[in-house]
Design a protein around this nucleic acid. Structure first.
Lengths: 141, 141
DNA sequence: AACGAGATCGGAATAATTCCAATCTAGGAG
DNA sequence: CTCCTAGATTGGAATTATTCCGATCTCGTT
């Protein structure tokens, strides 16, 4: 998704577009990967030195509510955020030693369909699917 | 798994069995559900008032390394721990509003098989699969 | 250009987790 | 059974991540 498409979407939702929010969006759209709240803060502060953690967190949760951002919770309690490139949503192979992760191209769609059938009373909005183990490098050392 | 089976397994691994560890195991085996570190601490302190958080965390990570305990990371950054009833491992439907969760009976096994085929260099040890949404109660209110 | 709902700031508060030095103990060796 | 030591525990402090809050500011409508 482009920045402009994203901005229209924010306007549709009646969300104010502030310079800080714009900058956070640019960071998220910059590289297609996930970020910690702190990384985002640091990058945004290059342009707006006064931005606070509060703003970063509030904005991320706002974006998450709208569906623009995904929150990932990895083993060890690491929280990360990434832009939701919708059609391209993905999962990860996460190395338990070095912590690096690799994107996967597919998703347990069949299971989700089955879950929805079996639990019609539950309104599914999202899911997580992460695979843990050891990457080649870490296994060899 | 029973307590005795678990203890033999610890001995096999050359892990010391201390009263604190025993008590933590009893908590985990007591009810088949997941616990926060604090819940475990509180329960253990009923018998050993002096137990510290440090011990609870160290023990949980030790058990996790051995494969006795699973760490669950939910949306919002909540970390929980549960005994790994191996053959009966399971996933959850988690309500984003009230936070309650319901166990699911199945698991994206097919996907895992495919992932292992496509990424043979990665040694998979575990995975997480959590489904988020709103439960009936929360949707109605 | 003025207004007001909502956003931001900075710093303090809270919560979760880890660290550490001193002390203790499980369980193997004798 | 006792001794011994590697490893475990404790309590409290340190660290880290996240949230809260009162004062101030600003986007976007009128």
């Amino acid at each position: 998704m482009t920045l402009n498409e994203t901005l229209s979407r924010l306007k549709e939702q009646g969300v104010k577009i502030t310079p800080q929010r714009l900058e956070i969006l640019k960071v998220l759209l910059g590289e297609e990967r996930y970020y910690s709240a702190e990384e985002i803060l640091k990058k945004v502060q290059k342009h707006y030195p006064a931005v606070s953690f509060d703003t970063v967190y509030r904005t991320l949760y706002l974006f998450k509510k709208i569906g623009l951002v995904l929150e990932l919770n990895f083993q060890g309690g690491y929280r990360r955020f990434e832009f939701n490139h919708e059609d391209k949503h993905h999962h990860h192979l996460v190395c338990l030693k070095c912590g690096k992760s690799k994107k996967l191209s597919f998703c347990p769609t069949d299971c989700l369909a089955r879950i929805k059938e079996e639990h019609p009373e539950f309104a599914v909005t999202s899911h997580s699917f992460e695979i843990y183990g050891y990457c080649r490098g870490c296994r060899e050392s």
